[in-house]
Design a protein around this nucleic acid. Structure first.
Lengths: 102, 102
DNA sequence: CTAATGTGCAACCTTGGAGTTGCACCTTAT
DNA sequence: ATAAGGTGCAACTCCAAGGTTGCACATTAG
């Protein structure tokens, strides 16, 4: 959970995810679209991999990265729980004020 | 967007949000539930405030913090876009394989 | 074999995050 | 007026994140 949100907290990593959602790519290809070196992209991909958001498989001399969006559902679920608790509290406040005003 | 995900990336801050979703509280009250000092909590609350996730209003000698979950919707929306792009790619792959196998 | 392309790993630098302590200020109770 | 509770601000430490360069290893093209 922490790893997932931490992964999403970086603009470069979000761009990588946006790209990988549309097509597989290698670290070198991805670096061409970003103002950083290929090694920096490799580090980002490692972070995404640790968060379970990306999967790497080697094909010949290149390593292709693919999105694995499963953990994103967990993130949305956590946010949803906070939102539900908030909504429940609002409902309780409305009930406390009385049904006539709710 | 970066600020929102960065705010969610810290376990202490997620706990603060979970608590604030259920009830308003002061920095001192919130610090009682966490293994850190009141000043550390104040810093976290400042981060949450910068991300637009929390609102502070002073009442007498204490400052009460309240959840403002608006930015959470933006976060969910971003995740949703990535998920949609991913789903679209999967659909395109299925179509490419042919309707008979899809 | 040799050159070129794609990777991976390690060292290094710099900056910011998370936490602490210390202190000064404001507000309320006695 | 004075003490106590609640804040806010600043300085300091520690460590990890993001980025870089340099180099060694694997794989394909000539």
């Amino acid at each position: 959970m922490t790893d997932v949100f931490a992964a999403l907290a970086d603009p470069s990593r979000r761009r990588l995810l946006e790209t990988l959602a549309r097509r597989e790519a290698t670290a070198t290809e991805l670096a061409a679209d970003l103002p950083v070196t290929r090694q920096a992209v490799a580090k980002h991909l490692a972070a995404l991999r640790d968060a379970g958001l990306v999967d790497a498989h080697r094909a010949g001399r290149e390593t292709r990265y693919r999105l694995t969006p499963g953990p994103l559902e967990d993130a949305v679920a956590w946010i949803g729980e906070v939102g539900d608790a908030w909504d429940a509290r609002l409902d309780a406040l409305r009930r406390h004020l009385g049904p006539a005003r709710g």
